[in-house]
Design a protein around this nucleic acid. Sequence first.
RNA 1: GGAGAGAUGGCCGAGUGGUCGAUGGCGCUCGCCUGGAAAGCGGGUAUGCCCCCAAAGGGCAUCAAGGGUUCGAAUCCCUUUCUCUCCGCCA
Length: 424
Amino acid sequence: MLTLTQIREQAAPVLAGLQKKHFAGAEAALAEAVALDDRRKAAQLELDTLNARANALAKEIGGLMKAGQKDQAEAAKAESSALKTQAKDLEETLRTTEQALQQLLYTLPNVPHPSVPPGRTPDDNEVVEQVGTLPELFNGAEPHWDIIKRLDLIDFELGTKITGAGFPVYKGKGARLQRALINFFLDQAQAAGYHEILPPIVVNEASGYGTGQLPDKEGQMYQIPVDGLYLIPTAEVPITNLYRDHLAKREDLPYKNAGYTPCFRREAGSWGAHVRGLNRLHQFDKVEIVQVQLPENSYPALEQMCAHVAGLLQQLELPYRRLRLCGGDMSFASALTYDFEVFSAAQKRWLEVSSVSNFETFQANRLKLRTKTEDGKTQLLHTLNGSALALPRIVAALLENNQQPNGHIHLPKALWPYTGFEKI
RNA sequence: GGAGAGAUGGCCGAGUGGUCGAUGGCGCUCGCCUGGAAAGCGGGUAUGCCCCCAAAGGGCAUCAAGGGUUCGAAUCCCUUUCUCUCCGCCA
């Protein structure tokens, strides 16, 4: 959520930023926000003045009663009662104005960083780097969904039977590979200084608002209406919300947390071609890294997180590229996002396996996550997160890129201690 | 799920209708004292919003949350949430 200070004091860059994100009606929305805020302040001032008078009267009455000046006390009571009626109306005005302002602010996306390229679609994303050589497969090489079936690693039909499409059942070495990857990613995160968290995988409504899933994107989450809870779409939600309503001590920063969770996404309306096999699922596993940083350190931290992700992909010996997302392709809450994609040799496609973002103060403002500056002023912190990494497409690439003419799959060395086997 | 008790500032804890944003202690911090430290002494130490260019200063709100009674509520009443104890159920 943008702050009123941003909207008022950086009007031109904010407007340009919203336009870069292709937010329709940006100019009118910003003007409306300022107008609502003006109304809010006016109502607040009026109400405060009124309350100040009422408080003064209440104090007087005590004295008058003691002094036995009953008539004057009664007169003061009458005035105080009248003030109270007025205050009720003002409180109502203030409440509705604040609510309208809040609702409006919820609809405004974050302002992108100056380095974000313009553009609307994934084609406009900028390739920052590409690392590793694209593998040449032998004749008759299979896409991962055929490999999975032939080696009985993952059973999609069984998943459909017990739950529904997009909920795979991992079996044998397929299951073991999941566990190996999770442990590998967590160990790597720990080595990079992240504190391990195992959070709940359902969250309440307040947490959904904190990280920006709510309002608006509830259609993307599985819901438990009887209890008002949501299945998490990513560990970012519970781990970032650890710091909701939090005033951080400066010397404790940064916070660096990593956590494994299953992730649940309804993916309403996004099924079609190109989503076979592991390319898109309703439930998948992911290790997420999350940082809370002082504003001046957040962009170096973003680079550090990207380096961490790149290191994982190199150890897994997967060719990858890093993209800087364009204004139209980045998420609502992000100021700058890098996507990492691995090359899936049999599909001959790049698959997104990680998304690393700096949200600047956008989430912190919703979360009320702050610190004090040296001179005692309150300051919003910056939040960042990144996948490190999401499993399914990593598995797809590992299977496709490392398949041998004899039908086996060779696993990268880094995983051997975790799998207990070198090939499948 | 049933019965009871409770929720106060970073922490502990006092406060049962009137100058209480809240005694006191701990912690933290600044100063004095000291060769230095400890002890001791003195000061400071919540959050949000608003007025103000800013600072200084001031106002309002907040004692789990929401509502009510009252001129006035941490204190009385109602609702909700959470915590603890006992019982029930249970990986």
